[in-house]
Computed example of a mutant assay.
Amino acid sequence: MEHRYLGNSGLKISEITYGNWLTHGSQVENETATKCVHAALDAGISTFDTADVYANTVAEQVLGDALAGQRRESLEIFTKVYFPTGPQGHNDTGLSRKHMMESIDGSLRRLGTDYVDLYQAHRYDYETPLEETMQAFADIVRAGKALYIGVSEWNTDQLRAAHHMARDLGIQLVSNQPQYNMLWRVIEERVIPTSQELGISQVVWSPIAQGVLTGKYKPGQAFPEGSRATDEKGGGADMIKSRYLNDDTLNTVAGLEPIASDLGLTMAQLAIAWVLANDNVATALVGASRPEQIESNVGAAGVKLDAEVLARIDAVLGDLPETDPTKTQSPPTRLT
């Protein structure tokens, strides 16, 4: 496993991060989730990403239990705040000082740790002054409950404003967590150049496009048993069906198989290596419903794709990838 610096900081994280969205506390049983976490540790993954909203706080608890007994200093633990949690009352959402202060304490309790390495705003909150949010972040950092701060799916104007305030408050905004993969490239035109200028890294989610880039979905065939597309309980089925599961996309993705084969990689490894080829990407988030998925996906660590391979990939995909930069923006009002 190789490590990369997170933003313009001295913090090193594993270039593949284990994330537990849609798995812990919902898609897989706790015993299996623990086995997946241990497989990640065995593979050299030191960085783990979760959020309080995942399975309505249960995912944090499961991750904390699975990491119990590990040397805390050898781990980087990330979590997030914003979406409704608990009974979802009127102050149980957003980036108000009240919600953030209460949320960090709950996250630390569930994770079984005194601090998180990175505390992230899961979306931009249009209903709370940014000054209030950033001051709360600063107080959380100064209290020793988080070492660094990050955001998720923020646009360039939001990143600039938050970076300016963080600098004035003496804290470090080091990351943005967007969706990014071969088929979803909306951060390339604006977010990545701005982030490079500001010293912010991307912590990318969905590098294999909800499993589509693994090649397991075939045009005209039934969805594989137990796949993301068949998991109505986990919550990701609608996204993958509406965005990717059509014959044009699946036929085009199948054209990547010879490239992966030539490199001795699985399709998933090729997709993860492609994301990591971007210098502004610090780490790719991968999840798992079985330990062997982790063992396979970490094979992308350290893989270097040269310019010829990247050009072959672009030639296969043509104009299929989504590149509209406006799709990096959070919705115009608070999500509930």
Rank of each mutant, 00 (worst) to 15 (best):
M1Q: 11
N8Q: 14
S14I: 11
I16R: 13
Y18M: 15
G19F: 04
T23Y: 01
H24Q: 11
N30V: 12
T32L: 07
T34M: 08
T34S: 14
G44F: 13
I45G: 11
S46M: 13
T47E: 03
F48A: 10
D52E: 15
T57S: 12
V58Q: 12
L63S: 07
D65W: 06
A66D: 10
A68G: 02
S74G: 06
T79W: 12
V81D: 06
P84N: 08
G86R: 13
S96N: 12
R97D: 14
S103C: 13
S107V: 10
L108Q: 10
G112H: 10
T113G: 01
T113E: 02
Q120P: 03
A121C: 12
Y124E: 04
D125C: 13
D125E: 13
E127I: 00
T128H: 04
P129G: 06
E132Y: 02
A136E: 12
I140W: 09
I140C: 09
A143H: 08
Y148Q: 08
W154E: 02
W154T: 01
W154I: 01
A161T: 12
A162D: 12
H164A: 14
M165L: 15
R167A: 08
L169K: 10
L169S: 01
I171E: 09
L173C: 01
V174S: 12
Q179V: 13
N181L: 08
M182C: 04
L183C: 12
R185M: 07
I187Y: 04
I187G: 11
E189S: 12
R190E: 15
R190Y: 11
V191L: 12
P193V: 07
S195V: 02
L198S: 11
W205V: 07
P207Y: 04
L213T: 07
G215T: 06
G215R: 06
K218N: 00
Q221D: 06
G226R: 04
R228A: 02
A229I: 02
K241C: 01
R243A: 13
L250N: 03
A254M: 03
D262N: 15
D262P: 04
G264V: 08
L265H: 02
A271T: 01
A277K: 14
A277S: 15
A282C: 05
L285S: 04
G287K: 05
E292K: 09
E295C: 01
S296T: 11
N297W: 06
V298D: 04
A300M: 02
G302M: 06
L310V: 00
A315S: 13
V316F: 03
P321S: 03
K327D: 10
P331V: 09
